[in-house]
């Protein structure tokens, strides 16, 4: 259990670092896919099967294909061959390192985080899976947010069509 956690955590982190470090945008996108696959494995390890599958389908499938499509459509040159500006790089490193230290310190000092993984009941029958329970919640308690999200998707679709029109005034 712990072994697999560290394998997939390493996969996620290395993919994430690859996104930042790679000079070629296409390589960055593929590193991002690796990172998302590791993250989906971690979700499944946390017994969140629906969310893990959604992560693969929506993020690694749809969103990253969209990114790759746009990268290849725009034909962005392998830019940034010049060095990064020293001031920007230095400031960024200071901000990032201090933020990482802050997060790790706060998390390790809190009492909450030392909780062991509690056992859960195994899935029996059809009405007990996480898909079933999330679906029930979505269409009973959270019926209004679902409607709002539907409207949001409609608005974004219309917005994309309007933005993509040739003559943008």
């Amino acid at each position: 259990m712990t072994f697999f956690f560290f394998i997939f955590a390493a996969m996620t982190l290395i993919g994430g670092i690859g996104v930042v470090v790679n000079r070629n945008p296409v390589s960055s996108a593929f590193s991002m896919i690796i990172s998302f696959l590791g993250l989906a494995a971690l979700f499944i390890q946390l017994d969140a099967y629906l969310v893990g599958i959604l992560q693969i389908l929506v993020y690694a499938g749809a969103i990253m294909v969209l990114f790759l499509f746009i990268i290849m459509l725009l034909d962005i040159p392998k830019a940034e061959n010049k060095r990064f500006p020293v001031f920007t790089l230095g400031t960024s490193i200071v901000v990032v390192v201090s933020f990482a230290t802050l997060i790790v310190t706060v998390i390790t000092r809190s009492e909450v985080g030392s909780a062991k993984l509690p056992p859960i009941d195994p899935v029996k029958g059809t009405g007990n899976s996480d898909v079933h329970r999330i679906g029930e919640l979505l269409f009973s308690t959270y019926w209004f947010p679902i409607q709002v999200v539907a409207v949001l998707l409609l608005v974004s679709t219309v917005g994309v069509v309007v933005l993509s029109k040739r003559e943008l005034k």
Binding site: F5, L13, V19, V20, I71, I107
Partner: peptide
């Protein structure tokens, strides 16, 4: 496995993303 493992991993991933936003100059990245 404890909650700490997942929280620290998540924090590190967030920091990597933040570093990318600060350092990279390409809008898509």
């Amino acid at each position: 496995l404890t909650l700490d493992h997942f929280l620290i991993l998540s924090g590190l991933l967030f920091v990597i993303g933040l570093a990318g936003v600060l350092v990279r100059r390409n809008l898509i990245i």
